[in-house]
């Protein structure tokens, strides 16, 4: 009984922490748990819509083995990274037997950002989450698949391989 209560308390604490920060502590929980919780506590919807800067947690949307990466350095600009920029991150969660493991320092390309990004035709695009695709220091993809939609601005950034592997291009 005590173990049951302890597990419940820990899950609640993790949910609250996930709701407070710009991170995805509760993003990897089961779908049943996500539906049962109140929607305003879901950390995916609690994104702070600003630059991707140091200590921002991002979702990894390829099959490299990492699940969550924390940004430790933005390679573009003083304020932070935006859609299509490259960052350096530290793997915080990883699948077993993946190509990368927890604690690895990796490069990644931001393929989805919660901050608005203007386009040449006057339109603006924003996503509900922050997501990256892991690359090596030469810019080559570590994984072989890319999940979810990616913007066509990546063509201008010369990330054609990501566009080729993406499910949807918006």
């Amino acid at each position: 009984m005590a173990a049951f209560l302890r597990s419940k308390c820990s899950s609640v604490g993790r949910t609250l922490m996930g709701g407070l920060g710009n991170n995805l502590f509760g993003a990897v929980n089961s779908s049943v748990e996500t539906v049962s919780r109140p929607s305003h506590c879901d950390p995916i919807f609690q994104q702070i819509r600003t630059f991707i800067q140091m200590r921002t947690n991002l979702k990894v949307v390829d099959n490299s083995g990492a699940k969550r990466v924390m940004c430790i350095q933005s390679l573009r600009g003083k304020k932070g990274a935006r859609l299509g920029d490259t960052i350096i991150g530290s793997v915080k969660e990883a699948q077993p037997r993946g190509k990368v493991k927890k604690g690895d320092v990796v490069y990644g390309v931001v393929v989805r950002a919660a901050m608005k990004r203007g386009r040449n035709d006057g339109s603006e695009i924003q996503f509900d989450d922050n997501a990256i695709v892991l690359v090596n220091n030469k810019g080559e993809l570590i994984g072989t698949r890319v999940f979810g939609p990616v913007p066509h601005e990546l063509r201008k950034k010369k990330h054609l391989k990501i566009l080729a592997l993406a499910e949807h291009i918006v």
């Binding site: 035709d121 339109s123 997501a131």
Partner: peptide, 26 residues
Amino acid sequence: VHTTIRVRRIIAGVGVEITFPIYSPR
């Protein structure tokens, strides 16, 4: 002339919002 609409849709489980200027020639 710069009247805009914000359109939302879920694509592959991810929410996407795009703001379009409705009088744009594109």
